[in-house]
């Protein structure tokens, strides 16, 4: 059962990597990176069950948080051209 799940996740990972390599715009690559983060979490959980040691799921939580931080950092740069953007400056000017 977990073998099937891990094969499915691996194929999905390969397709997402293909999209990241081909992706015409940067946003395609960011989307693919986000998806790869999600799939890495799923792969981690599935491999944990496959090998009979699912205690490592804490690491999956770390992955999830990092995925969000990385994506938001990249996108904040694109939206505002700055990492530490002050929203109040927009309303003042």
């Amino acid at each position: 059962m977990f073998t099937i799940a891990s094969i499915a996740v691996m194929i999905a990972l390969a397709l997402a990597v293909t999209r990241a390599i081909l992706g015409p715009t940067v946003f395609d690559r960011v989307l693919a990176a986000n998806t790869i983060g999600t799939l890495a979490i799923l792969l981690l959980a599935v491999i944990g069950f496959l090998m009979g040691r699912p205690e490592w799921l804490d690491i999956a939580l770390v992955y999830g948080l990092l995925n969000l931080i990385g994506t938001l950092a990249v996108l904040k740069y694109f939206r505002h051209g700055d990492l530490a953007h002050d929203a109040e400056q927009d309303t003042k000017s």
């Binding site: 946003f27 960011v30 804490d58 939580l61 938001l72 996108l75």
Partner: peptide
């Protein structure tokens, strides 16, 4: 732990997608 992972997905995935769509439109 699995419940926490699922909650994390439910919170972060819409946030990331929204930010991505906004940034892409802005660009």
């Amino acid at each position: 732990k699995l419940i926490f992972i699922m909650l994390l997905f439910l919170v972060t995935s819409p946030v990331a997608t929204h930010a991505l769509a906004q940034a892409a439109l802005h660009a």
